[in-house]
Simulated scan of single mutants.
Amino acid sequence: MTATSEAPLLSVQDLVVEYPSQRFRGKSFRALTDINISIGRGETLGLVGESGSGKTTLGRAVLGLAPVTAGKIMLEGKDIGHATRKERRALSRDLQVVFQDPYTSLNPALEIGDILSEPLSVQGMEPAAARKRVKELLDQVNLPADAIHRLPREFSGGQRQRVAIARALALSPKLIVCDEPVSALDLTTQARVLDLFLQIQKDTGVSYLFVSHDLDVVRHISHRVAVMYHGEIVEQGPADVVTRTPEHPYTQRLLLASPVPDPDRQEQRRADRHRLLETHRQQHEQAGALAS
């Protein structure tokens, strides 16, 4: 995949996120340390790491759902890291999100037409124009026209995720934060939804911050990849390079942990990963001994 070379749409600079302790005089928890990433127009940055690495926190910080302790989050040159609620409402035109579980993010009591028209109505669109836009959105995500009168529970997981994607597209945003949007789907449905993301990007020029724990997924959809470990970015670069020939030991472990269909190759991967973990443990022990 190729990306644009103009000024970045999103730029995160030296970002720090800390959560205050719940205990009196307790030490705050630092979730992110000195994060620096950028996303160009029409580009996808894959953000990958294991559970607890901080990748979801970074996505939440961009969305204004996590506290910015230090650093900047710039969208089109404007710092949005400390935006007010009113400013966030205005930002919804340019910045949207697709969550992991489409069912919990969709109001089960509303028909799909009402779910999709809600953000349009909030922005002041007339009902007739909103109905036309909803039909366009359903067509864009390959859902039938009669979906407009159906409830979320009447759809499969993959179809519900298409509804969630349509809602995110409703206001024609410039950037969508995708938080593990295919991890709850089976492999066949994953492939279809990923292809939908790619087609939408091709048609609209939207940018994605694509959060995932799966290197194979981010390889398929990303222009560039950033790897997170313990709240820091340990490696980033072109998707093909980072996901096939990574340099950092942590990224190498992630690659070796990815399942492959060949049993012999899978067994070899397990052995290689075990050897890499043992080497990393020994290096850590040696560093600790030297420090003491």
Rank of each mutant, 00 (worst) to 15 (best):
A130R: 06
G124Y: 06
E136K: 01
R25Y: 14
A164K: 01
V234G: 10
L116Y: 07
R131H: 14
R150L: 13
P127S: 07
D101Y: 05
T245F: 09
T2F: 11
E76Y: 01
K174R: 15
R153S: 15
E50Y: 08
A168D: 00
E180D: 03
F210C: 00
L151P: 09
A90H: 02
I165K: 02
R160W: 07
T4R: 13
G52C: 09
G288K: 15
L45E: 03
L95F: 01
V182K: 03
D14Y: 04
V177H: 07
G288C: 12
S21Q: 10
I233L: 09
R273C: 11
R153K: 08
S117I: 01
E118N: 11
Y19Q: 06
A3G: 09
Q159G: 04
L10V: 10
L198C: 12
N142R: 14
Y229M: 13
I233C: 09
V141S: 04
R30Q: 15
E154R: 07
E180R: 10
T245L: 11
L209K: 08
V17F: 04
D139M: 06
S11H: 14
S156P: 10
V242T: 09
A3E: 15
A128K: 14
G157P: 11
G124N: 06
E154W: 11
H220I: 01
S38A: 10
D114L: 12
P246E: 12
G158P: 01
G81M: 02
I80V: 05
L215I: 01
L45W: 12
R88T: 01
V227Q: 07
R162W: 11
Q140I: 08
R85V: 03
H213K: 07
P102A: 09
K55R: 12
P108L: 01
N142H: 15
V193E: 00
R275T: 14
E18M: 04
A129L: 05
R93Y: 01
R60C: 02
Q96E: 00
Y250S: 06
P20Q: 08
R93W: 00
P108N: 00
I176E: 01
A145Y: 04
A129H: 03
R219Q: 05
A166R: 07
V16N: 08
G59L: 05
R273E: 13
E235C: 04
I221M: 13
Q266A: 15
R244V: 05
S105E: 02
R270L: 10
P238H: 10
S183G: 10
L9Y: 00
D186E: 05
Q283H: 14
L256V: 10
G205V: 03
P108C: 04
V97S: 03
L209E: 03
A83R: 01
A128E: 10
R270N: 10
L194E: 07
D114E: 09
Q252M: 11
R273G: 11
A170N: 04
I112A: 08
L91K: 02
L63Y: 08
T188P: 02
V217K: 12
H274P: 05
I35A: 04
G54S: 06
L169M: 06
N107M: 09
R23N: 13
F99N: 01
A129G: 05
F24L: 14
V217W: 03
